[in-house]
């Protein structure tokens, strides 16, 4: 049993190490500060990924911001308001579960026709972020819900019994107690957003020009890697460099978010 667990862990880690080693070995030669911050030329086969980095951060930030209130609202609805209404609660939860498992290409197509065409946003960072938010919201909501439900009901009940209002109990007791799980939910969503391609190819496009505002198109790093590797002849070396940059940026963002997970002592 023990050997099997260690074996399984080893296989996973070895695979991950191999993957990172491959990307580092093939991408490191191209990676430099100039590469990271200068403009792309020839669709990315020359020059850098400065505009792509900006587009990535914009799309991920906006998508997370759009999804956050929806996810928080949905999770709170389920865990706090519908706590005694099992039928409604499981309906909301089921809808999240179905949305989470929806294929991203389908969501991309819906986003394109809704935001790109109907709302006239075309290929744009805004359209990409809004569509991506549809994917992130249920993912975050389920993670939030798991965190909120892990807070014992007795904690809520005992705060209410002291005359503290429902709202203050939630804000000052339940949410702080669930905080590590809530941050983990955001990390999960941000990671997903960083890695997403199908949705964004169809909505925020593959442009490597510096976006002037959120109505401009802009490729994210993952989309850029995909485009370089598959659609541009001779793009492969640069695809590895961009993939390495994606790994580094993702790791940095996740490390930053992980700092929020640590429980502070309430004053």
């Amino acid at each position: 049993m023990r050997a099997a667990s260690f074996g399984a862990a080893f296989v996973v880690l070895a695979f991950f190490a191999l993957l990172v080693a491959d990307v580092v070995m093939r991408g490191a030669a191209e990676l430099s500060p100039t590469y990271l911050f200068s403009a792309a030329e020839e669709g990315g086969r020359a020059g850098g990924i400065g505009p792509v980095l900006v587009s990535t951060l914009l799309v991920v930030l906006l998508a997370t911001l759009f999804a956050l209130p929806v996810a928080a609202g949905g999770a709170l609805l389920c865990s706090e308001l519908l706590v005694h209404r099992q039928a409604w609660k499981s309906l909301v939860r089921r809808s999240f579960e179905i949305l989470v498992s929806a294929p991203s290409v389908a969501i991309g197509l819906i986003g394109w026709s809704l935001f790109g065409q109907l709302f006239g946003l075309g290929f744009s960072i805004l359209s990409g972020a809004a569509t991506l938010a549809f994917m992130l919201a249920p993912l975050m909501a389920l993670a939030f819900l798991a965190g909120l439900e892990a807070v014992p009901q007795a904690l809520r009940a005992q705060s209410l019994a002291l005359g503290v209002s429902r709202w203050r109990t939630l804000l000052n007791l339940v949410i702080p107690a669930a905080r590590p799980a809530l941050v983990a939910g955001v990390m999960l969503a941000v990671g997903r957003a960083m890695a997403e391609t199908a949705v964004l190819v169809l909505t925020s496009g593959i442009s490597t020009r510096m976006p002037q505002d959120v109505f401009d198109p802009g490729a994210t790093l993952a989309v850029h890697v995909y485009h370089l590797a598959h659609n541009l002849p001779g793009g492969e070396p640069r695809a590895y460099a961009a993939a390495l940059a994606l790994l580094l940026v993702s790791a940095l963002v996740q490390l930053g978010l992980a700092r929020l997970r640590v429980q502070e002592q309430p004053a």
Binding site: A154, L155, Q158, S159, L160, A161, L162, G163, L173, A177
Partner: peptide, 17 residues
Amino acid sequence: VRQKIGLIPQRPVAFPG
């Protein structure tokens, strides 16, 4: 009511902090 009457539950739970 809850300020006038305090209920101490059978299994108290520690609040964070």
